[in-house]
């Protein structure tokens, strides 16, 4: 199993302390795409943060690629993300002052890939996401759909084991969203990467292998077309 949540709980202190996750169990296999649905504020983002090692559970265990994330310090968790994870954000978060190719090359360079190997890899991924010939374009010159393609390319260019995507199509129209999602799935599957997808869109969720609904009591299987 690539990613395992075992009885994970998380609560936030504050003026109104809140239990966000309670007894969450999840297993994600390599090449599998799991969509997490749920109402706003139910804890989808928290779940993804925990999977990324950006936050720590109050109880339970999260094991990624054989490592208990809670035992890793900040640098070690950062290294896990750098080498083995890719991220797709709703607002793209493409660096405005880097070209499309430079944005995509970032994870490769961070992972110390030899300089001469970077351009061919970036070109390959650019072609794969349908942005061939746009490598020198700056983000301000790209449309929303193109920006999300750059973000997907960046998430996959270093062939991560896990892709975490939170509302990756939230800023896109329906047709573009579906094309982007298909692309994400296709490329992830080719790389054998697991995809954990948080969304509130039933249409998006149907593209996943499995759909789970996050409730205050944990994760439960969910069939979007079946209501509820």
């Amino acid at each position: 199993m690539m990613l395992t949540f075992a009885n994970v709980s998380k609560h936030y202190d504050g003026t109104t302390p809140r239990n966000v996750l309670r007894g969450v169990n999840l297993e994600l296999r390599a090449g599998e795409c799991v969509a997490i649905m749920g109402e706003s504020g139910v804890g989808k983002s928290t779940l993804l943060n925990l999977a990324a090692g950006l936050d720590r559970p109050d109880a339970g265990q999260i094991v990624f690629d054989g490592h208990d994330l809670a035992t890793l310090d900040d640098d070690a968790a950062t290294l896990q993300r750098r080498q083995k994870m890719g991220f797709v954000f709703q607002a793209f978060h493409v660096l405005p002052n880097l070209s499309a190719a430079q944005n995509i090359a970032l994870p490769l360079l961070l992972n110390g890939m030899r300089a001469k190997d970077v351009p061919p890899r970036v070109s390959f991924v650019l072609l794969a996401v349908g942005l061939g010939g746009r490598e020198h374009a700056l983000p301000r010159e790209l449309s929303g759909g193109e920006l999300q393609r750059v973000a997907i390319a960046r998430a996959l260019v270093h062939q991560p084991r896990l892709v975490l995507a939170d509302e990756p199509t939230g800023n896109l129209d329906h047709d573009t969203a579906m094309r982007i999602l298909a692309l994400l799935r296709e490329l992830a599957q080719k790389n054998g990467a697991g995809v954990l997808l948080a969304t509130h869109s039933a249409a998006v969720a149907t593209a996943a292998d499995r759909v789970l609904r996050l409730t205050p009591d944990g994760l439960e299987p969910y069939a979007p077309g079946a209501g509820g």
Binding site: R81, R82, G86, F87, H93, P96
Partner: peptide, 14 residues
Amino acid sequence: TREFGMLRHIGVTR
């Protein structure tokens, strides 16, 4: 800030 946040996500240390 967002740029730094994104960089932290993709494996850049503080």
